[in-house]
């Protein structure tokens, strides 16, 4: 700060920016939860703590992590995308269809990405130009895209990818699974995009206050189309890794994926009300959910109970966020009453 400032209040230590925290430990709580759960699972079953299981969890999580990155942008923009699982099914089935027809994989890959972006853009166009609420628009495409995937595949189980593609899902580099490496690079890229670029800032501004953003000169409609398009691209990358990992796909792939991904994003601390989000939180959220799933599987819990667990976790996560952001009115009333009582007690 300049030493020549004539501001008297500067001496009170109240001047501009003086109270800013240098290091913000966001997402620390979630990290601690992950570590604590890891310890608990290890105590229950020592197999959990192996390096192999750790890499295995990250590999399983990679698709969710990548899709949760896109979802962080969408939710920070005060949107939602329920169509991610269906989009994933469409792009992987279409890709496989081309491969089965003998198309070179590079060309098929290119078309797959163009299709993923286009399917996302359809959501964005509906939200931006037809003013369809995101929940409804993507609920519609969730069903429509799933139908399209079923039509295209006519119930077929696809199998048999070119080795180059399989490597993306099953290969290793320096002993680390390729999906984990891809996810790590993508997370770093998304952190930069979210926090350090115009696009990220504009997403957050539209989510925070659409009209103020518009008045400030943010191209609101363009951002809306772009953010859903980006979501489509994220889903395509996630789908590519998933189908390569299992070397196959079918029209039902990615069913119930939206709830997992939205859960990961919300657990991470991205506000459903828009305007704020954290990339690290979504990463941690996706890892946490996969860890839980993994532990439940090791413990022999049925898939349907896993769904119940996810549902409960989502509600808890949103509630925790609401408590943190002081949105729960009756809690506040209780707090006020308690304060009044203790004050009266002191007065007496």
């Amino acid at each position: 700060m300049s030493t020549t400032t004539a501001d008297v209040r500067a001496e009170d230590g109240k001047s501009i920016g003086s109270a800013d925290r240098r290091f913000r430990l966001e997402g620390l709580g979630l990290t601690l939860v992950i570590v604590a759960l890891g310890i608990i699972f290890t105590l229950i079953n020592p197999r959990f703590a192996s390096v192999d299981n750790f890499l295995n969890i990250l590999t399983q999580a990679s698709t969710y992590i990548i899709v949760a990155m896109g979802m962080t942008f969408v939710i920070a923009k005060a949107g939602i995308d329920l169509s991610v699982g269906s989009t994933l099914a469409v792009v992987t089935c279409v890709f496989f269809g081309f491969i089965d027809d003998g198309m070179p994989w590079a060309l098929a890959l290119f078309i797959m990405f163009a299709l993923g972006a286009a399917l996302g853009a359809v959501n964005g166009l509906m939200v931006a130009f037809l003013a369809v609420p995101a929940l409804i628009a993507t609920l519609g495409t969730m069903v429509a895209y799933r139908g399209a995937a079923l039509l295209h595949s006519s119930g077929k189980l696809y199998h048999g990818l070119p080795p180059e593609i399989v490597w993306l899902g099953q290969g290793r580099l320096f002993g680390i699974p390729v999906p984990v490496i891809m996810a790590a690079i993508f997370v770093a890229f998304c952190w930069w995009l979210f926090n350090r670029t115009r696009f990220g800032l504009h997403c957050r501004s539209v989510g925070g206050n659409r009209e103020a953003a518009r008045l400030a000169g943010v191209p609101v409609s363009r951002i809306e189309v772009l953010v859903y398009t980006f979501m489509g691209v994220c889903v395509t990358i996630g789908g590519l890794i998933w189908m390569a990992r299992i070397d196959g796909t079918q029209a039902t792939l990615g069913t119930a994926m939206e709830i997992h991904v939205i859960a990961a994003t919300i657990i991470g601390g991205t506000s459903l009300f828009g305007g704020r989000g954290t990339i690290y939180g979504s990463l941690a959220g996706a890892i946490l959910l996969t860890m839980l799933n993994n532990a439940l599987v090791i413990a022999g819990v049925e898939f349907f109970w896993q769904l119940v667990a996810i549902g409960v976790i989502v509600v808890i996560a949103v509630t925790v966020n609401n408590v943190r952001e002081n949105r729960i009115v009756w809690l506040d009333t209780l707090r006020t009453r308690r304060n009044q009582k203790s004050r009266r007690a002191r007065g007496a």
């Binding site: 930069w192 350090r196 800032l201 957050r204 206050n209 953003a213 400030a216 000169g217 828009g274």
Partner: peptide, 29 residues
């Protein structure tokens, strides 16, 4: 209606006309 309540101060002041620089001669940061 001037501000986006969830953004911080510099983000609000510069919203719509952000200062950027080039990284790798390609991207604006």
């Amino acid at each position: 209606l001037g501000l986006v309540e969830t953004l911080n101060v510099p983000e609000n002041v510069f919203l719509g006309r952000e200062k950027t620089f080039r990284v790798f001669g390609l991207f604006n940061q």
